[in-house]
């Protein structure tokens, strides 16, 4: 799966997360494997409820539910981190893996100044003095493009706009020079112009800091802009994994076709945008076979059996259609002639 020249920063193997509830067992993540190389950006894409956020939180030990059961392996810089205690995880969280959240409006503690919150993280992971940490916080705020950082360091979160607050969250995530940055839908809660600015900022900072990034999104546009590699998730399972360029130009799974068809593109004449019929499966009713089968227009008898990830080189997919069928049907979907 991994290009041979880079050793992975993070490697998840067959990660499974399930919650036992009154209604039955919810398999939120069901056999997810992927790797993130150095300075690489991996995009994880899927609808809400597809398990992408749960997978990330589980990797960091942030899934705190008495009824959760977790299996598989997650290696960070060669070290197994799944099942580490809170105390063991603490230097990794915030120190080596930074996190950016979906809603910047609620991600910061409302009663503390933003500078205080950045200093708090710096002092948890480094030996900086208060003055040094404050100076670093001002520097970070400047780097993420907050005007007049020397003054704004003493502002409270509610005194910032959504986009500016997300910049603060990014500054905080980057404060300890993390090897890996996990961004959970970092632009979803922002308006369109701010979205682009935040994505640009992340790309620029990645160059400066040399971090790897995992970006979670439901927006293929964000993937196309940011990701080197893509994991498409559906109902907790990987549907397609591969380099961004392959997945976008040569998508193999009907679900990916639907996602791509739903993005308007310039230069491509379509009658209408493709849609994916039906709703995402509820996590309690994931079918035995292919999870996407109930919504798939090309469902076959084989689909009652769960397809394994297969494909060539590092572009894998989980669909029973033959390569020839895929090429033919995909064309029709993406031209908007039929629904995925």
């Amino acid at each position: 799966m991994l290009s041979p020249e880079s050793t992975p920063i993070l490697e998840a193997t067959d990660l499974k997360v399930s919650f036992s509830t009154r209604g039955g067992i919810i398999r939120a993540v069901d056999g997810l494997s992927f790797a993130v190389g150095a300075k690489e950006t991996v995009g994880i894409v899927g609808e809400s409820g597809s398990g992408k956020s749960v997978a990330m939180y589980t990797m960091l030990g942030l899934t705190r539910d008495a009824n959760v059961s977790i299996s598989g392996s997650v290696r960070f810089q060669g070290q197994e981190i799944l099942g580490l205690s809170d105390t063991q995880m603490r230097p990794i969280r915030g120190g080596q893996i930074g996190m950016i959240f979906q809603d910047p409006m609620t991600a910061l503690t409302p009663v503390y100044k933003v500078g205080w919150q950045i200093v708090e993280q710096l002092r948890a992971h480094t030996d900086l003095t208060k003055q040094q940490a404050r100076a670093r916080a001002i520097e970070l705020l400047g780097e993420v493009g907050i005007p007049d950082p020397g003054r704004r360091v003493d502002s409270y979160p509610h005194e910032f706009s959504g986009g500016m607050r997300q910049r603060v969250v990014i500054a905080m995530a980057l404060s300890c020079n993390p090897k890996l940055l996990i961004a959970d839908e970092p632009t979803t809660a922002l308006d369109v112009t701010t979205q682009a600015q935040i994505l640009d900022l992340m790309t620029r900072l990645q160059e400066n800091y040399g971090s790897s990034i995992i970006i979670i999104t439901h927006d293929m546009g964000v993937i196309a802009e940011m990701a080197d590699r893509v994991v498409v998730m559906y109902a907790g399972r990987p549907a397609e994994i591969g380099p961004e360029i392959d997945v976008v130009r040569n998508p193999q799974h009907p679900y990916t076709w639907g996602l791509l068809g739903a993005v308007p593109r310039t230069g491509v004449r379509t009658e209408r945008l493709a849609t994916i019929p039906g709703n995402a499966v509820t996590p309690l009713n994931v079918p035995e076979g292919c999870a996407f089968a109930p919504r798939c227009s090309f469902v076959m008898d084989q689909c009652a059996t769960r397809p394994a990830l297969h494909g060539d080189a590092d572009h894998l997919n989980a669909c029973w259609l033959s390569p020839a069928q895929k090429v033919e049907l995909r064309g029709k979907v993406l031209r908007g002639e039929i629904d995925a």
Partner: peptide
């Protein structure tokens, strides 16, 4: 649609209540 594709084998009854 291609004729190699068989009709859906899953029915509406599996939709959530």
């Amino acid at each position: 649609m291609s004729d190699t594709v068989s009709p859906p084998s899953l029915t509406l009854s599996e939709l959530p209540k």
